[in-house]
């Protein structure tokens, strides 16, 4: 049975910010994130009868939101701008590798990286690096690496033709992020 302390009318106050923040990080539009929170709460009200209480209301609502976000991506698939060659970082590849595909730069050693995780400035730099990515790259990266959506579903949701295209895109996303962090953080720290 759902806990009696969990009153649906309190959900907006208790979980609204958490849901909003999660949605905003993914859809990057305040209006859309707000709509998603609203739809999630409504779906929660309607489904509360069937809620088994096996998980917390928090986890349960997050689950609903994740589905709503995936639906949102799927519906807007055709409006997404396709990635260009330049988005995939061809220029970065050319800068980093010689013609035989060997490194033409020396990578820095990132000393004690874990210490940076809790550093506010580092977090800001990382957010900056994320925000420089083309939208579709970021969508894919978030869905795949944080939300653990399967490769097949990512292809379907975001309209990639093949798993291979997906893996290459993820690889280039990481390459761009790595490069950005190295320049903006590790070479100064």
């Amino acid at each position: 049975m759902p806990s009696k302390t969990e009153k649906p009318e309190d959900w907006l106050d208790d979980y609204g910010d958490m849901l909003y923040c999660y949605a905003l990080l993914r859809v990057r539009s305040e209006a859309t994130a707000e709509d998603l929170v609203q739809e999630t709460l409504l779906a929660g009200f309607q489904g509360f009868e069937k809620f088994s209480g096996k998980s917390s209301v928090r986890t349960w609502l997050m689950g609903i939101l994740k589905h709503k976000i995936i639906d949102f991506f799927r519906k807007n698939r055709h409006e997404q701008t396709l990635l260009k060659e330049s988005d995939l970082g061809e220029d970065l590849l050319a800068h980093q590798f010689d013609q035989r595909g060997h490194w033409s730069i020396e990578l820095l050693e990132w000393k004690t990286p874990d210490q940076h995780l809790s550093n506010k400035q580092f977090q800001q730099i990382f957010q900056q690096c994320l925000s420089r990515l083309p939208q579709r790259m970021l969508d894919l990266f978030m869905l795949r690496t944080i939300d653990g959506v399967s490769s097949e579903d990512c292809c379907d949701i975001l309209g990639f033709d093949s798993n291979n295209q997906l893996w290459v895109t993820l690889s280039r996303t990481r390459m761009r992020l790595r490069q950005c962090l190295e320049i903006k953080w590790f070479s100064n720290s």
Binding site: L107, P113, D114, L117, R178
Partner: peptide, 8 residues
């Protein structure tokens, strides 16, 4: 570095 990115 890639592993670190995942952590971040």
């Amino acid at each position: 570095h890639l592993r670190f990115l995942q952590k971040v």
